[in-house]
Nucleic acid binder design. Sequence first.
RNA 1: GGCCCGGUAGCUCAAUGGAUAGAGCAACAGCCUUCUAAGCUGUAGGUUCUUGGUUCGAUCCCAAGCCGGGUCACCA
Length: 596
Amino acid sequence: MNIEIIIKGQVALAINSLYGQSVEPSQVQVQLTRSEFEGDQTVMVFPFLKISRKSPEATGMEIGEYLKANLAEISGYNVVKGFLNLSVDNQYWINGFNEALKDEQYGFVPVTDQSELVMIEYSSPNTNKPLHLGHIRNNLLGFSLAAVMKANGYKVFKTNIVNDRGIHICKSMVAWLKFGNGETPETYGKKGDHLVGEYYVKFDQQYKSEIAGLMAAGRSEEQAKEEAPSIIETREMLIKWEANDPEVRSLWHRMNGWVYAGFDETYKTMGVDFDKIYYESDTYTIGRDEVLRGVSEGIFQQESDGSVWANLENEGLDRKILLRSDGTSVYITQDIGTAQLRYRDYPIDHMIYVVGNEQIYHFQVLSLLLDKLGYKWGKDLFHFSYGMVELPNGRMKSREGTVVDADDLIAGMIDVARSVSLELGKLEGYTEIEKENIYRIVALGALKYFILKVDPKKTMTFNPEESIDFNGNTGPFIQYTYARIQSILRKAGETGIVIPAKAETGSLNDKERIILKSISLFPEVVQEAGKGHSPAIVANYVYDLVKEFNSFYHDYSILNEPDLTIRDFRLAMAQTVGKIIKNGFSLLGIEVPERM
RNA sequence: GGCCCGGUAGCUCAAUGGAUAGAGCAACAGCCUUCUAAGCUGUAGGUUCUUGGUUCGAUCCCAAGCCGGGUCACCA
């Protein structure tokens, strides 16, 4: 059992026995002892002073004496002010360490047939432009959250809703027809998503110049925006699309196909995947049907112009439009349809949407609407909202060309990883393919760790010149430690040392104790990350562990340790730290290299 | 303006209501003949936005204010 829980229970008994008053174990505050004091676990005695009616020191001493006498795991205690520091017997840490050593899935709760199903929606791109840095945060968080939930014993289903229809999609199509000359990704030599994105930009340029021309001819800005030929053409195309016009549909299929091929490549490089992809072009009509059902049941109101509204004023929100006066769907209508379809397809217990925090209001509304429509899961949907990624001079703006493209960023980081690695020259003997794979692992490790170590809900700043480092608190630093551990284990194998299944040693030095204590925390960290929906907790924990291990590695020898018992124990310790790095990083979607 | 979120070292970020607020980067000083120097050790760097309140104790909770961001579309 967890030492903290044992202590809480015993402290409650101690207070009952010493002062004749009962307290709940949950009221006992226990935390890790700060490193500058002696001990492992610290009990706060302040809350019990009213009960003991004695000084903090005296109370602490009495409780400490009781614990030492009644708990085999407690080998000693000291009291500093109101802090009762308990020393936990080495054997307790060693026992826990042996558990960690033999369990390959250490820290993970197994998924069973009884496990609840959690569906996680993430990524959810538009098909009119390539993925950028903001999408990267979304994808990494979504993928990582899925891994964390799975490690907490949930069945996890990853899904992606692709925004493949609408006026913005038609814009790229219009521009391609006008300027494209039949260009394809093959003829142009660029990924399809980039090609389509370029025509989206071209459309905007064309549209702007038309507006300027019209305004020069005396129109107001508003009029100009409405009357520009390209926007009129785009609207006509959207109507044709909705009417299933074969020519428009065929072009739409073709260009979206280019985009999907491009996205697939980016997803693959990033190492994220999905169990099922939904397309808005398939779900938006379902949403419309659901809204109309709501009208017939009196949940929603239809205005005389045909538009449909939900009144959420009783819930503290506004009136919200659900269908336009021409009967077409708006954004939220599509989400209603998608949700309905998903719950029809799968026995979902929990639904998580990984979507930026600018849509908090949207998901409040969606939750209420689904609830009104009679879905019991409406109220329980969880919007995992994360903060934006900003550049040093502010928010990314596609119109100002300050968007950090995902493919460019990743390619650039692989270049840096390659040149750093070549300079260090530690990969001789590896084939080019193997080397490239390691560059990729390291580059993505840097990017993923950089993004995932930050509390998801916070806005984060990304400086393209400075942010991605390979030294210090970074993914490569942790990967490097892993690689070194593997090197030690390889050498141990070469010299005929067999890492024992059981690694016992009576005495532990300070740094060994610290590492063993840290190892014992991993399962709690995984649990906490699941409850708090925060991969950052895992990232920061792994970093701390690695720091401790490196410090140990610097001060004490492993392979050259003459005492074989101690050497075997340290090998087992290194192996376990390596395992935690690997398991922890798997929760972040980061690979670990055997060498680097 | 209403609602939501943030403000911690020069920069990027940590810190279940606990002890002297921690890391990395940048700066400075050391350490490669020893298990991988993408590393290690040390120095310096702070009015945790402000003012009150709650209590044994507040970066954390509450109130007010200041600053920054988001959001309140027949856009997505």
